[in-house]
Simulated assay, not measured.
Amino acid sequence: MFSALVLDDHDDEVYAHVRRLEASDLPDPGPGAVRLKVLYSGVNYKDALAVTGSGQIIRGGYPIVPGIDLVGRVLESDHDEFGAGEWVIGTGWQLGEVDWGGYSQQAKVDGDKLLPLPEDLSPDQAMTAGTAGLTAMLAVMALEEHDVSPEDGEIVVTGASGGAGSFAIALLDALGYTAVASTGSKGAHAYLRVQGASRIVHRREFEDGPEHPLESGNWAGAVDAVGGQTLAAIIARLQRHGSVAALGNAGGHELPTSVLPFILRGVNLLGIDSNTCPNDRRRAAWHRLAELLHDEHFERARARTISLEAIPEASREVLSGQVQGRVLVDMQA
């Protein structure tokens, strides 16, 4: 027997309950299944939407165990790559959305959706980063691959006080970039400076969008977690051949821009999808993240550690913007 946070729906209302389950209750993912003891997960924005029923995240029907991230030790495996006792990471690939996810002391996952835990990364560090850290690393890698170098100028990070944004600040700083944090949270300024932000600008600088299709080229590059008018403003203000890695839509999914920045300045809009990112690239990103960040980065990024029972309340706090940093879920607490 083990405990899991299970979502049920009734009359279009979603209810989250910690329940006792048996291994036989876990849905079979098919050939290559891996059953593991889950040690940690995290509370991402997408998780918070699922647990509170605030967004259309669950697409696999109810009941379901949410949690898009997990790290654990293999108990038994039908997959060629993994054997009993090995440590594995699972993020994305519809975990906690279609397939049962990480908010459980045990999970059964398609082995193709798992990766070995890098040797230089502890299980709690892996889930302090989670999807947020992985997505930030993918964004920074995309900027590197499009020739945005530290010598080119400042890199602005929008939604910087969020999980992906704050990890992007830390990663850019570790690589020698000059990272500028954009946030509307005055209380996050000290945290962002410690993470590596060279300076901070208010989000209002971008949230009304650009006045003109092309404006002064202020930014060598950007990591954008906001979308909408904010992303349009950044595109208009990128330097010649600059790039913006787009990884979120907290400010809206529509993009009111023009082709002029693309054809007159040669700027690049880079889409970052960590959910279905190919495993070879995921593996590279996890290893880069483990190399670049140290114990103090993860300690600063971790807001607090909670139990399964505390996930619903933490989810409400995440959605209301009350959480600064990452919430780690200890499955054995």
Rank of each mutant, 00 (worst) to 15 (best):
residue 1 M to W: 06
residue 2 F to C: 03
residue 3 S to R: 15
residue 7 L to S: 05
residue 8 D to G: 04
residue 21 L to F: 11
residue 32 G to R: 03
residue 33 A to Y: 00
residue 35 R to T: 11
residue 38 V to Y: 04
residue 44 N to R: 04
residue 60 G to L: 00
residue 61 G to E: 08
residue 62 Y to T: 05
residue 65 V to H: 00
residue 68 I to L: 13
residue 68 I to D: 05
residue 73 R to I: 12
residue 75 L to S: 01
residue 79 H to F: 00
residue 86 E to L: 03
residue 97 E to P: 06
residue 101 G to A: 02
residue 107 A to N: 03
residue 112 D to H: 01
residue 112 D to V: 00
residue 113 K to A: 04
residue 114 L to I: 00
residue 125 Q to F: 06
residue 129 A to N: 02
residue 142 A to V: 11
residue 153 G to M: 03
residue 156 V to L: 15
residue 158 T to Y: 01
residue 158 T to D: 03
residue 160 A to C: 09
residue 162 G to Q: 09
residue 163 G to N: 09
residue 164 A to W: 05
residue 171 L to Q: 09
residue 178 T to E: 14
residue 187 G to A: 08
residue 195 Q to W: 09
residue 197 A to M: 09
residue 197 A to W: 06
residue 200 I to V: 12
residue 202 H to N: 15
residue 204 R to W: 06
residue 211 E to P: 05
residue 213 P to R: 06
residue 214 L to C: 09
residue 218 N to L: 14
residue 223 V to H: 07
residue 224 D to F: 08
residue 224 D to P: 08
residue 235 I to N: 07
residue 253 H to F: 13
residue 255 L to W: 14
residue 262 F to P: 02
residue 263 I to V: 15
residue 263 I to G: 07
residue 271 G to I: 09
residue 273 D to C: 13
residue 273 D to T: 11
residue 274 S to T: 13
residue 276 T to H: 14
residue 277 C to V: 10
residue 278 P to N: 07
residue 282 R to T: 06
residue 290 A to Q: 12
residue 297 H to N: 15
residue 312 P to F: 11
residue 321 G to A: 09
residue 321 G to K: 13
residue 330 D to F: 06
